[in-house]
């Protein structure tokens, strides 16, 4: 089963995307812990796109015809056997590979010295697979969760 949602990358995006995912999760068995982990990963990814992807506001001249500028596209795939949820988050913002960022450490050193860096770490820790690709001007971050 696949589905797609397109929302404007603003402060309402997270709620809209969570509702979209929740509706689909009702079709399968997914325990509370995994729902929590998914909610966490989705918040970190969506907030990141809303905050930074379209920073500067104005679409570049060559993106004038791009209907997805300023938006977040979420492609959802749900398989039954094995039960896996795959979500791809796409934006047309400037190239940004979140997985290339410095590896976070959990010794407490990072907690003391750095202000950020927790978000993508949480995504990596809670999901079974995380991958990033930049294709045709689109940032595509894909997460997989075994349900």
């Amino acid at each position: 089963m696949t589905d797609e949602l397109i929302v404007v990358a603003d402060d309402d995006a997270l709620d809209e995307i969570n509702d979209f995912i929740s509706e689909h999760l009702e079709e399968v068995e997914c325990d509370a812990k995994k729902r929590f982990q998914l909610e966490l990963a989705v918040e970190e990814i969506v907030v990141n796109i809303v905050s930074y992807a379209y920073e500067g506001g104005e679409a570049p001249e060559d993106s004038g015809e791009d209907p997805f500028w300023g938006k977040i596209r979420v492609a959802l795939e749900l398989t039954e056997d094995p039960a896996v949820l795959t979500l791809s988050f796409m934006d047309q913002g400037s190239f940004f590979d979140p997985l290339a960022a410095e590896e976070a450490d959990t010794s407490g050193k990072m907690f003391m010295e750095r202000v950020g860096g927790f978000g993508i770490l949480m995504v990596k820790e809670t999901m079974d697979d995380v991958s990033y690709v930049y294709r045709d001007g689109t940032n595509i971050l894909t997460i997989k969760k075994n349900l």
Partner: peptide, 16 residues
């Protein structure tokens, strides 16, 4: 709680 503790552990917060 269990879920929140998991977040504390993955960020290194629980050690401090």
């Amino acid at each position: 709680g269990e879920n929140v503790m998991e977040v504390f552990e993955m960020t290194g917060l629980s050690g401090l």
